[in-house]
Simulated assay, not measured.
Amino acid sequence: MHRYEVQILRSLKEGPKSFWKLLDEQDEHIKGFVERLKALLEAGVVEYSDGKFSLTPLGEERAASLLPRKDVRCPHCQGGYTFSVFSEAFALYHRLVEGRPLPNLDYDQGFMTESDVFSRVAFLYERGDLEGQDILILGDDDLLSLALASTGLPRSITVLEVDRRIVEFITRRSQEHNLGITALEYNAASPYPLKEHAFSVFITDPVESEKGLRITLSRGAQALKRGGALYFGLTTIESSWHKWYNVERMLLEMGFVVTDILRRFSAYPDSDNHFDEEFYDRTMMRRLMDVEFPLPADADWFRSSFIRCEAVEEPRPLVVGEVVFDTDFYLDEETMATPKFV
């Protein structure tokens, strides 16, 4: 039995589950997951009723050797990290983000929980990538810049962001609290606008099309010095292991080595982002199954891993100059949870 099928069957052996719960409790990319779930339905192993999937008698027989799913992750920390040492900074950040702009679906925005943002801060601190560092953030709907600045530890923080609302919000908060953040309006499809190889840390949560990943990570290669740290988020929801393989090849070609992967490190809740029918109607995943799923989602199903890389030589971008900014920048056959343009 394939491990992805094991993940689904043991989840259902625990009891009936929604689509969102099942999606969150396995790690195949969403297109493969839906195809596998459809096959189980067609084979009579799984049934769907009243918004939930459950095992049929045939499914119970097939899952007889499996234990019901057990939660083995620590409920008290985020991937082994605590940000209690930054409690004052966290309290300031909580105040700073009040009134933040809600996601613009045209830019594939969605922000993580405040606690997950500070778990990233704690990780950067542990790795020596916070104190006295020159940090560049490409895309900051998470408002990570405000969290980093709240600690008072970086030497400089620069934000490149396509959404003018976010640029203006960060600039206003920075001026109000003397945080010293520089925020500039910038589309990653445009030529890199700053001095190359001038930053020690680069952080981004890229779109997950292969084109978008190649461009975004290349901007990081243009920004970083030799020995600099590149941080980015990547999911298994919208990226198959083959895409992960291609991303690793890109990183190696650009002169980076992967030093850390923190699995399922960041969550993007529907409730915080006000994701509703409009959001789901603009995604391909809504049309993959032949049944309607109840909304709002009852699980924080969109989670990303946080990856740290280090430049072992002067980084070599795979993309320089301007590129075409079209639907391929955001969408490929695996980005089923990304809203389409309207």
Score class of each variant (00 low, 15 high):
residue 241 W to F: 09
residue 235 T to G: 01
residue 223 A to K: 09
residue 221 A to L: 14
residue 219 R to I: 11
residue 242 H to N: 10
residue 249 R to K: 13
residue 244 W to T: 00
residue 238 E to A: 00
residue 239 S to R: 15
residue 244 W to Y: 09
residue 224 L to F: 10
residue 237 I to F: 07
residue 227 G to A: 10
residue 243 K to N: 01
residue 245 Y to W: 12
residue 221 A to F: 14
residue 244 W to Q: 01
residue 220 G to A: 07
residue 236 T to L: 15
residue 244 W to I: 08
residue 229 A to T: 15
residue 234 L to G: 00
residue 245 Y to T: 07
residue 227 G to C: 11
residue 239 S to F: 10
residue 236 T to G: 03
residue 236 T to S: 12
residue 229 A to Y: 12
residue 240 S to T: 14
residue 225 K to M: 10
residue 249 R to E: 15
residue 230 L to M: 14
residue 218 S to K: 04
residue 239 S to N: 15
residue 248 E to W: 04
residue 240 S to Q: 06
residue 218 S to V: 05
residue 247 V to A: 02
residue 246 N to T: 02
residue 241 W to M: 09
residue 243 K to V: 08
residue 223 A to N: 09
residue 242 H to L: 10
residue 232 F to N: 04
residue 231 Y to V: 11
residue 232 F to K: 11
residue 239 S to W: 08
residue 219 R to P: 15
residue 238 E to L: 00
residue 220 G to W: 03
residue 226 R to E: 15
residue 239 S to V: 14
residue 227 G to R: 03
residue 220 G to Q: 05
residue 218 S to L: 05
residue 229 A to F: 13
residue 233 G to H: 08
residue 232 F to W: 15
residue 234 L to K: 09
residue 221 A to T: 13
residue 238 E to V: 00
residue 218 S to N: 09
residue 247 V to K: 04
residue 231 Y to Q: 03
residue 221 A to H: 10
residue 230 L to R: 09
residue 242 H to A: 09
residue 237 I to V: 14
residue 243 K to R: 13
residue 222 Q to C: 15
residue 243 K to C: 01
residue 229 A to N: 08
residue 219 R to T: 13
residue 221 A to D: 13
residue 229 A to E: 06
residue 247 V to M: 02
residue 233 G to F: 10
residue 233 G to P: 05
residue 246 N to S: 03
residue 245 Y to I: 01
residue 242 H to V: 08
residue 218 S to G: 07
residue 232 F to C: 12
residue 234 L to N: 00
residue 246 N to Y: 01
residue 218 S to W: 04
residue 233 G to Y: 14
residue 244 W to E: 00
residue 245 Y to H: 12
residue 224 L to M: 08
residue 222 Q to P: 13
residue 221 A to C: 11
residue 218 S to F: 04
residue 247 V to Y: 01
residue 222 Q to V: 06
residue 231 Y to I: 11
residue 224 L to C: 05
residue 221 A to S: 12
residue 248 E to C: 10
residue 220 G to K: 04
residue 225 K to Q: 12
residue 240 S to L: 04
residue 239 S to T: 14
residue 249 R to L: 09
residue 237 I to W: 04
residue 241 W to E: 11
residue 228 G to T: 06
residue 224 L to Y: 12
residue 233 G to K: 06
residue 238 E to H: 01
residue 238 E to D: 14
residue 245 Y to M: 03
residue 247 V to T: 13
residue 231 Y to E: 00
residue 230 L to A: 07
residue 230 L to K: 07
residue 234 L to C: 03
residue 242 H to D: 13
residue 236 T to E: 04
residue 239 S to C: 15
residue 227 G to N: 08
residue 244 W to K: 03
residue 222 Q to R: 07
residue 229 A to Q: 06
residue 241 W to Q: 06
residue 225 K to N: 03
residue 224 L to G: 03
residue 223 A to Y: 04
residue 235 T to V: 02
residue 247 V to N: 01
residue 226 R to A: 15
residue 248 E to A: 03
residue 235 T to Q: 02
residue 248 E to D: 03
